[in-house]
Amino acid sequence: MSETQDKRGRPAAKDRPFLDELEAKPFWANLKEHKFTSQRCSACGKFFGFPPQFLCPHCLASEYEWIPLSGKGKVYSFVTYHRAWHPAYQDKVPYNVSLIETEEGVRMMSNVVGCPPEAVKIGMPVEIVYEDFEDYTLPKFRPAT
């Protein structure tokens, strides 16, 4: 076990985002200001989805804008972790991880918070909440009010 590998030689899990990922810097910078954004292609008009990339995955154009999303969406699928793979989650099990589909049709990994994991259902309407840490903000979702 080291900082970079676990005892089976797999890359060590991290509990924070990789903020230096060049393509994603605006995403994290916008979140810091509580703006939830995704790239939209200026040529074909489609959202890139996640993870961010420099060329459009639909038409390979280089021009895009970071567009604010409504922050509303639905749970596409979800799981409940009963085991912690990282020390930071030792006290958090059982916890939810969900695939959220936003109103704009973009899917991302996140957590549904503000309700017990057993209350989460596929198709459940959710809305964004911002969880602030010292140097970044994580987008999470709660049941829509």
Binding site: A13, F18, P51, F78, V79, L99, I122
Partner: peptide, 28 residues
């Protein structure tokens, strides 16, 4: 170690394991 490729967009929300990836399919 070899990267799996998507960990930067999964681990910050506590998604670490292949069993969970497959649990998304099972749930659906």
């Amino acid at each position: 170690a070899i990267r799996t490729g998507d960990e930067h967009w999964e681990q910050p929300w506590g998604h670490f394991a292949a069993v969970a990836t497959h649990a998304f399919t099972a749930q659906r």
